[in-house]
């Protein structure tokens, strides 16, 4: 009986924190379906009194969000794919091969994670502007292609691939690159899934660098578009709710689909 009460208390406490956590999301999505007259009314309701798609239609008309959405999807998917491959390969080599300078290479790679963006962003800005790469997606893709965090995470996870399996494959005459593709990659799916979501989110979320590199509004990313939209239509709360909903929903959907793998991967990266 006592444990049942304790269980009820504990679960309801967590449920309360859970509601606080979810509330802003629900409020945003529901508000996106309210007409502006309802959003600005003195009397506030949690649920829309009259549901409308008007906010979504008007922001699409005034501000090509689908285009920005497409740009962000393209960049996020491209960069994530590159980072997954480079990180897994580097993680594999650093974890499983022995060579001089291995510790140093790994140390420097991991060390890059500690450097504030403020230190490197100014020289990088001048470098990419001088190279004429402004308004070119290469300026977004190239600096993101090698990730210290990704290499760190994949290397930590390589213990999931036993040396004996690699030896056996070598004895069977498999080439190193084939071993990497056919054995190492399939055995690292948890870490890859976790890194994929992290990396996708980072690109999706990156604000300052695309803001500096992309001047052409049509090629801009969603995160920057959101601030531009807010600057121009800041009083159109319904539009802003719709725009944030659009920029959040894909990430949440991806997360909910993969969350089990993801949480396992995040945890394993930190525990070892």
């Amino acid at each position: 009986m006592r444990t049942r009460i304790a269980s009820g208390v504990l679960t309801s406490l967590l449920a309360m924190i859970g509601i606080v956590t979810v509330f802003p999301f629900l409020w945003m999505v529901l508000s996106a379906f309210k007409p502006n007259s309802e959003i600005n009314a003195a009397e506030q309701n949690f649920l829309p009194q009259s549901w409308t798609f008007e906010n979504f239609l008007s922001i699409q008309e005034n501000f090509d969000f689908l285009r920005l959405f497409g740009n962000s999807v393209f960049l996020s998917v491209t960069i994530t794919a590159i980072v997954l491959y480079t990180s897994a390969l580097a993680g594999f080599v650093i974890a499983k091969y022995e060579f001089r300078g291995r510790g140093l290479l790994f140390g420097f790679t991991v060390g890059t994670m500690m450097i504030p963006w403020a230190v490197t962003i100014i020289p990088r800005y001048t470098m990419f502007v001088d190279a004429g790469l402004q308004d070119n997606y290469l300026s977004i893709i190239v600096p993101a292609a090698i990730s210290g965090f990704g290499i760190f995470m994949m290397r930590q996870n390589m213990h999931a691939v036993p040396d004996e399996v690699l030896e056996a494959a070598r004895i069977d005459g498999a080439s190193e690159i084939r071993i990497f593709h056919r054995i190492v990659l399939p055995m690292s799916t948890n870490a890859i899934a976790a890194l994929a979501i992290f990396q996708f989110l980072w690109v999706w979320d990156d604000y300052l660098w695309p803001y500096l590199m992309i001047n052409d509004n049509a090629n801009q990313v969603l995160a920057v578009g959101l601030t531009t939209f807010a600057g121009q239509y800041g009083t159109d709360y319904g539009g802003l709710f719709a725009a944030t909903t659009i920029s959040i929903l894909p990430v949440i959907v991806v997360y909910i689909i993969f969350q089990r793998r993801f949480i396992a991967g995040v945890a394993s990266a930190a525990v070892k």
């Binding site: 924190i17 979501i197 807010a230 944030t244 920029s247 959040i248 949440i252 949480i263």
Partner: peptide, 23 residues
């Protein structure tokens, strides 16, 4: 609970900032 509590972490910061601006 695990899924819910992690949700804000995977949400883009720019968008979160706008949600809270309106909150």
């Amino acid at each position: 609970f695990r899924t819910i509590f992690y949700m804000p972490t995977v949400t883009p910061l720019v968008a979160v900032a706008y949600i809270w601006q309106m909150m």
